[in-house]
């Protein structure tokens, strides 16, 4: 979703400067697939086939198993399986919030990486420009912007570190 917004932003920037209807002038930037009006709905047949296939496969597996297996319920067989141990107490237990915090930190820096990827790909064009494109380079500001972005995330990391979010024991 963030990359989708990134692509939309990028497209919006591109299309916006030439104000809409003349957007086809920027097709050479690889936006043909989005703007090409010749694609048809037939292209989605493979997607439909994939979805149907997924359903059919699962249904066949479950139905076949239900038909073939014996049905002889016993009290011991109907209890919850816990690797052979006796179950004690309710299955709703308190789990450690460290799992959640680690996942949260991972997510933040994963999104960070998602934003660094397009920047890295476009870095040469941003800094030095490209003679075949209608594009004015911004020079060293490209680097400073990413440093500013990473600086903000550094503050977030320092906060998490000092607050003990990265402790596991």
């Amino acid at each position: 979703m963030p990359s989708g917004i990134g692509v939309t932003c990028f497209a919006g920037f591109k299309l916006g400067v030439t104000r809409g209807p003349q957007a086809t002038a920027l097709l050479h930037l690889g936006m043909e697939k989005v703007l090409d009006p010749v694609y048809t709905y037939m292209d989605y047949n493979w997607v439909a086939l994939f979805i149907v296939g997924a359903f059919v496969l699962v249904v066949i597996c479950l139905a076949l198993a239900a038909v073939l297996r014996p049905h002889r319920p016993d009290f011991a067989k109907l209890t919850t399986y816990e690797c052979g141990e006796q179950t004690i107490g309710s299955s709703w237990i308190r789990f450690n919030t460290r799992y959640y915090v680690i996942a949260l930190m991972f997510l933040v820096f994963d999104v960070d990486v998602v934003f660094i990827f397009p920047w890295a790909v476009a870095f040469r064009m941003l800094t030095f420009g490209d003679t075949s494109l209608y594009f004015q380079p911004i020079g060293p500001a490209a680097l400073w912007e990413m440093i500013a972005f990473l600086g903000i995330l550094l503050v977030a990391w320092l906060y998490a570190y000092k607050r003990g979010a990265l402790e596991w024991v």
């Binding site: 932003c9 299309l15 104000r19 809409g20």
Partner: peptide
């Protein structure tokens, strides 16, 4: 409209 800029939206 093909654009996200407010001015561009108004024009298109």
């Amino acid at each position: 409209t093909g654009t996200l800029w407010l001015g561009g939206i108004a024009e298109s």
